[in-house]
Amino acid sequence: MSPYEDLIIDHWRHPRNKGTLPDPDVDVTEANVPCGDVVRLQLKVRNGKVEDVRFDGRGCAISMASASLLTEMLKGKRLEELEKMRQEELLEALGGVIKPRLNCALLPFRTLRKALEALGETGSRVDPPSYR
């Protein structure tokens, strides 16, 4: 298995849902400090469903491809479904990730968990985009 399946290269070169939303219900940022990878995730929620999603950030091919792929998995999903989502689902969707790079692949998943927690607590949370 190559650690860089075509799927990863494709999502890295052509990220889906990249950018920012004008009025997100949640806007959170997570980072892998040692490698400098940063993922910002924004969700627009309506009737308990993810209506729209954007990610932004910088980092290695695996973390960025993972973020891009994750946004595709989120769109249209109910929040309860996302609460139950396991990290393995993302790793499988990526076609498997080698051990030393799990942290990179899972950064977007941790960002999603942070977003769900924020939604659970207050119904919305918008962090200032301070990572720039």
Partner: peptide
């Protein structure tokens, strides 16, 4: 334009060990 971790991972596929990070 390429993150050093990606470079190190691909070189590792060829048996080449370098360090990537800060």
């Amino acid at each position: 334009g390429i993150h050093p971790h990606d470079v190190a991972t691909l070189l590792d596929q060829e048996g080449i060990a370098i360090r990537a990070g800060h």
